[in-house]
């Protein structure tokens, strides 16, 4: 009985000691790994052969590696360097070799490369590869169309891709009307809100959601101001000179939030813009 008691005390003491050591080794190892982060990706041709019967699940794990890497960078608010974006592109290439039909790979890559890195052409190239393997998936031309319209301000190409997407039988009917309205609504906030809201509704990635959410808030607030400016013009037959005038005359209750940190500016034609151009400070650098 005594021996058992002694053994139990010993086990309890070792368990506590183990928990302390575990915490310390975990932190220390993470620190060491951070110092010598190599960011290598095995060549896609090797991974494909080495994956044997498990190509699909290894593709999943490799993509997770990329998601965690970028997620970690965003969370710690470190600026992502050019080399790190290239590392992400290498991961994506390896995953697409293992499973060229995996939507999440393309989705994550383009989400990050456009909203995060501003590498629009890279994103379009990846989406074009996706279209080759998944010709029946309307989501790829939809996203290409969005990049042309929203980031590259090429409405003609944007409409062309949205129209391509709308031809797919699985595409929601709204796409057809979106594509036809695209050219007409150049620079229209309401239209951009509709496009982003559609993407946000289906988005699960917290990183990409935060990009969409931030832009949506900016656009909604810009739209709110434009509506107030329109009312002001109707009432007083002139455009307001500044936001303070609107505030004083109770056309708005408070200055709406500009999530990118810029100041609202009113143009003489009634349009409302921001000095930040709705770009993240790190992206502008």
């Amino acid at each position: 009985m005594k021996r058992v008691l002694l053994l139990l005390v010993g086990i309890a003491a070792l368990a506590v000691f183990h928990a302390v050591l575990y915490g310390q080794t975990f932190e220390r190892k993470s620190g060491l790994d951070e110092q010598v982060r190599v960011n290598y990706v095995l060549p896609a041709s090797f991974t494909r052969a080495a994956a044997l019967d498990f190509k699909g699940v290894i593709a999943d794990f490799q993509l997770l590696q990329g998601i965690f890497f970028i997620g970690d960078k965003i969370e710690s608010q470190n600026r992502i360097t050019e080399a790190e974006w290239n590392y992400l592109v290498r991961i994506i290439t390896a995953v697409t070799r293992l499973d060229p039909y995996f939507f999440d790979t393309y989705h994550f890559a383009t989400g990050m490369l456009t909203w995060g890195a501003g590498r629009y052409q890279d994103a379009i190239n990846i989406l074009e590869t996706a279209r080759q393997y998944n010709p029946d998936d309307y989501r790829f031309p939809y996203h290409i169309g969005f990049i042309y319209f929203y980031f590259l301000h090429d409405n003609q190409k944007g409409a062309q891709y949205l129209e391509l997407a709308s031809r797919n039988p699985d595409a929601p009917p709204i796409l057809a009307s979106l594509s036809s309205r695209l050219a007409y609504y150049k620079g229209n906030y309401q239209f951009s809100i509709e496009l982003i809201q559609r993407m946000l509704d289906r988005e699960r990635s917290p990183e990409i959601r935060s990009y969409y959410q931030k832009r949506l808030t900016a656009l909604e607030n810009a739209l709110l101001l434009e509506k107030a400016v329109k009312q002001y013009k109707e009432d007083l037959q002139q455009f307001p000179e500044s936001i303070d005038v609107m505030l004083k005359q109770n056309y708005i209750d408070k200055i709406p939030l500009e999530p990118y940190g810029g100041d609202w500016i009113f143009l003489k034609n009634g349009r409302v813009y921001s000095t930040s151009k709705f770009a993240n400070a790190s992206q502008e650098k």
Binding site: F102, D104, R204
Partner: peptide
């Protein structure tokens, strides 16, 4: 994962 959850669930179960 973000979108193709069906694919990921498939991969794990078949594996």
């Amino acid at each position: 994962f973000m979108q193709d959850l069906g694919k990921v669930a498939f991969d794990f179960n078949i594996s």
